[in-house]
Design a protein around this nucleic acid. Structure first.
Lengths: 344, 344
DNA sequence: GTGAAAGCGCTAACAC
DNA sequence: GTGTTAGCGCTTTCAC
């Protein structure tokens, strides 16, 4: 029950409110000795600044909004994805005594843009972190822009000029995974693409093609099958690929859910993984360590990306402006048990 | 950019600030005609109340805190669990223009109680929803009580007298699942218990025993194996149960992760599910529909529970006090493919 | 380096 | 039914 106010602290320390305020907010121009005195008073009175008073007086809420696709609606993206982003954003917010306003939303709903505008207008966050795949949806991006709240998009397909955004190296790391498969002796490496609307996932496909070409392997149409990021679409794609006479010796899926679907089909078909077929995914969701064999995949630094985005928004408010608009946080390969040397 | 204030609206509508305030807050004692006038002015000026000003003047933050075990730390509980609770709490908060403050925390950390106190003292939420299994940890419960913030515990093992809490019918629904297995002709029904510290999970075991006894089946020690809610512990328990000559024809695990572990072991042992072995879980996490065969399980109304808890806290602030202290939101059976008639 | 005064936009407590 | 007044606990601005 912290009832102490700035005023109480000021009286106790024998200084003015403004001086206490300076100490609390780490502003310069306070003599070391007064600072110590004030800090002692704060501790004695167990003073805690009142965020509402602070927000009101400073004319802006210390709030960062995090907007993402609602995982409880369709379980895509997976809940783990969301929880990781929250953790990162939360971390950045706590450091600066900001609050995190989370807003899961179902983009399939009719008036989703109106809903987002409402939320922003009511809560008045200092900035918005917009997660993929929403970060590529013009309707949603426009709704946020309409409120003229600073925004940082996570993993947009194509960053725009002068826009702050945080991305990972989807393309490069996918090329690296492909090269890893090639180094194991695979040459018939199939690829299962992700959902059309998720642009960052499309970059993964580019990386696969880069590596294939660089290694002198041709990207046959027969090696590429379309999926939609769901487990089921991974199964269907796998059935198509694995029922051919000339089947691939490795399958790289644009995300883990689809890769898990491939594993299931391989089991059903009696194809041994990884001796007869190598399988790789992307995302490193919890599922990757629950399937058998454990999935080789790519770990996205979701937490770090969200933390960086939130921190940038908070610093932006404090006047610091980065030159770099596109921040890249690299993903990394997680080699597990589902990949191995090519047969023969 | 909503810059309109109560004052502007009042002038525009030709009434006093207080009257506008009444309309905004749906207070009584406003003539229908003035109300219409005020609402028109609000719409014209695109007025949005400033939450900070409101919080400051009313001397309390319109914030509900949701505290839960951090899923990104150990993936237990699963992220889906957390996301569902968030959704429910968020729903209740939005309705009343409250904010939701989420606080995932790792209870294994040393000063977790201090951390929780800090967060509460800074944010000053009007109430706290404390999720299981934290709701059974005395250190955490005490830390929250120390701040004298109203709290509602979700699924506490044993509710205390006069305490508000929200629970589900763990025991009864577990008995029902057991009866369902018995009705399929099973009599050697094994049970895998959950983590010791999670009291609500212990109630599930009681339900299993209730049903066994009621049906005249004895609860042999050989049928009960201890797990710790993890996938791995389910595997170990299954190995123990299924390597016996007289093996059970059904296994009921206290949660889905362990049940999924049982399925994996059954596959490895070449035991067909559900023809040779029926398997049931509890929770209905996403995994339940990803394993093969799909898991028969019990769906907990997590979202509804969290929503109810948040709504109770908000109403509590508004003076309404429920007589009922223990609110029960029932779980339900989800019969899928992993259970079937007993062999022979 | 430090302080005094004004006011952020609302609600509470009354008066009418 | 409606209006008036006095703050809530801070930051801002500017004076010293």
């Amino acid at each position: 029950m912290s009832k102490a106010t700035l005023d109480h602290v000021a009286q106790r320390a024998g200084v003015s409110m403004k001086t206490v305020s300076r100490v609390v907010n780490r502003e310069p121009n306070v003599r070391e000795s007064t600072k110590t005195k004030v800090e002692a008073a704060i501790a004695e009175l167990h003073y805690r600044p009142n965020p509402s008073a602070r927000n009101l007086a400073s004319r802006h809420a210390h709030i960062i909004g995090l907007i993402y696709d609602d995982p409880s609606a369709y379980e895509v993206p997976s809940a783990g994805y969301v929880v990781n982003m929250q953790q990162g954003a939360l971390h950045a917010c706590r450091k600066s005594h900001y609050e995190l306003l989370i807003h899961p939303c179902d983009y399939r709903k009719g008036n989703i843009d109106g809903e987002i505008e409402e939320i922003i207008e009511y809560a008045r966050p200092a900035g918005i972190v917009l997660a993929a795949p929403l970060s590529d949806m013009p309707r949603i991006v426009r709704a946020i822009e309409k409120t003229s709240t600073p925004m940082i998009r996570l993993s947009p397909g194509k960053p725009r000029a002068n826009e702050l955004c945080v991305v990972t190296n989807d393309r490069e790391i996918s090329a690296e995974m492909t090269r890893y498969l090639i180094s194991l002796g695979h040459s018939k490496i199939a690829y299962i693409t992700g959902h059309r609307s998720h642009k960052a996932v499309a970059n993964r496909f580019e990386g696969y093609k880069d590596a294939m070409r660089q290694s002198g392997l041709k990207v046959s149409e027969r090696l590429v099958v379309a999926g939609d990021n769901s487990f089921g679409s991974g199964e269907i794609a796998a059935e198509k690929l694995l029922s051919r006479k000339q089947r691939p010796t490795a399958i790289f899926a644009a995300n883990d859910d689809m890769a898990a679907g491939v594993i299931r089909v391989a089991n059903r078909f009696g194809i041994e993984v990884p001796t007869e077929l190598s399988i790789a995914g992307f995302d490193d969701v919890a599922l990757a360590r629950l399937v058998f064999p454990n999935l080789t995949t790519i770990r996205q630094p979701l937490s770090a990306m969200a933390e960086l985005a939130a921190a940038m928004l908070i610093e932006g408010r404090n006047g610091k402006k980065d030159k770099k608009t596109i921040q890249i946080v690299p993903s990394s390969l997680k080699i597990r048990e589902s990949t191995g040397p090519a047969p023969d």
